[in-house]
Structures are given as structure tokens and as C-alpha cells.
């Protein structure tokens, strides 16, 4: 929670931000750090897309239970993104296929894109931030 409510720089400029997530959730800190940056960015009213490719698609799996490794289960936090008006979640079809995953395996609603569609989406961004 931030008391810096609806903070922006006053310029009213809206840029297209893509957060590109390519790492599995717990083996490195990238997934959690990326998610926190996205939640903070939401206060700036920018056009945010979250993209999950390669091992990043593993972040969105249902049925995660982290009690045994004693870390926070932040997979639940992806379901809070809607309340932060972050509604553009994309996953890469080829990454899903290579891991035997389908949309039904994921904890949130996503748009599945082909590699070409993903490439176009990336090309039209003002800023791409990679985790």
C-alpha cells in the first residue's frame, strides 16, 4: 500500500511499458522483484503490459504451495493486478507448449500470443523492462 496516492509527474504523458518476465518463480528473485516493480508502477497511470515468456510462464501456475520451502506465495498476488488496473497479461504460446501447459493451468486470465504477435507487441513499446 502506498500513501503516494495516484502519484504522477504531472506531465500527463502516458507511455507504453512492457514488463518482460522470463524466470521461474522461486529459484531467483527476479519474478518477485518484477511483480513489486509492476505494482509500484501502477501508481503512475501508465499503459502497462505484463508479458510471460520462457520459464516466466511458470510464475502463473495454479496450485503453488510454498509452505515446504518457507517463502511467500506471491502467485496469489497476480490475481490482485486487476484491482490495480493492470489488465494486459500476455503469455507466449511456444513457451507454454514447450512446458506442457495450457491456459487452464494458469491462475489468472491471460491472452496467449504467437511469437510473431509477441514480437509486434514488443516493437510498439516505449519502454521494455526485463526481469
Amino acid at each position: 500500500m502506498s500513501d503516494m496516492d495516484d502519484m504522477d509527474d504531472g506531465s500527463g504523458i502516458v507511455k507504453k511499458f512492457m514488463f518482460l518476465n522470463r524466470k521461474a518463480p522461486h529459484g531467483t528473485v527476479y519474478a518477485l522483484e518484477g511483480l513489486e516493480v509492476v505494482l509500484i508502477t501502477a501508481a503512475f497511470d501508465q499503459d502497462v503490459s505484463m508479458v510471460f515468456t520462457d520459464d516466466g510462464v511458470y510464475q502463473l501456475l495454479k496450485g503453488i504451495d510454498t509452505k515446504g520451502i518457507e517463502v511467500k506465495d506471491f502467485s496469489k498476488t497476480y490475481r490482485a493486478l486487476d484491482g490495480y488496473d493492470i489488465e494486459k497479461l500476455y503469455v507466449d504460446q511456444a513457451s507454454m507448449d514447450a512446458r506442457g501447459l495450457t491456459e487452464d493451468d494458469l491462475i489468472v486470465d491471460v491472452t496467449v500470443l504467437s511469437v510473431d504477435e509477441m514480437a509486434n507487441l514488443m516493437a510498439e513499446q516505449d519502454v521494455v523492462i526485463s526481469f
Binding site: M1, S2, D5, D73, K76, Y84
Partner: peptide, 15 residues
């Protein structure tokens, strides 16, 4: 308990 985060004020207000 549901989302594992404390909401931003804007989100809290809306919810």
C-alpha cells in the same frame, strides 16, 4: 490473506 500484499491506497479505497 487473499493476495499476499497490502493494497495501494487507491486500490484499498476502491475495494
Amino acid at each position: 490473506a487473499e493476495y499476499q500484499i497490502a493494497p495501494a491506497v487507491r486500490v484499498l479505497t476502491k475495494a
